[in-house]
Amino acid sequence: MKVFLYLLLAIGAIFNGLGAFALIRFPDVYTRIHGATKCTTFGSIFSILAVVIYGFVKGGGEGGTLAIHALLALFFLLITNPTGSHALARGAHRAGVRPVGAVVDRLEEKE
């Protein structure tokens, strides 16, 4: 059981690390949003799943509260993360930031 939880936490940590790495590697705001928010979401899902499973295994009022609060955090993270990313990307495009090295930009053709 403990090994399984450590495995989940390790996957979460690796993807969070890759997300941070993507911020340095990628050239512009859009690709950085890909790296940062995506890898962070996947990393966070695994970290939170570890907490949820730990809470349910522990059981009782305390463990149950922990598990349910973590699940709620995951639920709202899954709603707010794409909304925030979309707002950032749309704002950047409206402010005139063009994607670096783009092969095609249909949105600019439209505007």
Binding site: F15, L18, F21, A22, R25, F26, Y30, T31, H34, G35, K38, C39, F42, P99, V100, G101, A102, V103, V104, D105, R106, L107, E108, K110
Partner: peptide
């Protein structure tokens, strides 16, 4: 889909092999 795409993007982060664009 998300798991598969995550591994794909992880590969792109490490190698830096990207070809971005906005499609419709």
């Amino acid at each position: 889909s998300m798991a598969r795409a995550n591994i794909d993007v992880a590969y792109r982060v490490i190698t830096g092999r990207i070809k971005p664009g906005i499609v419709r």
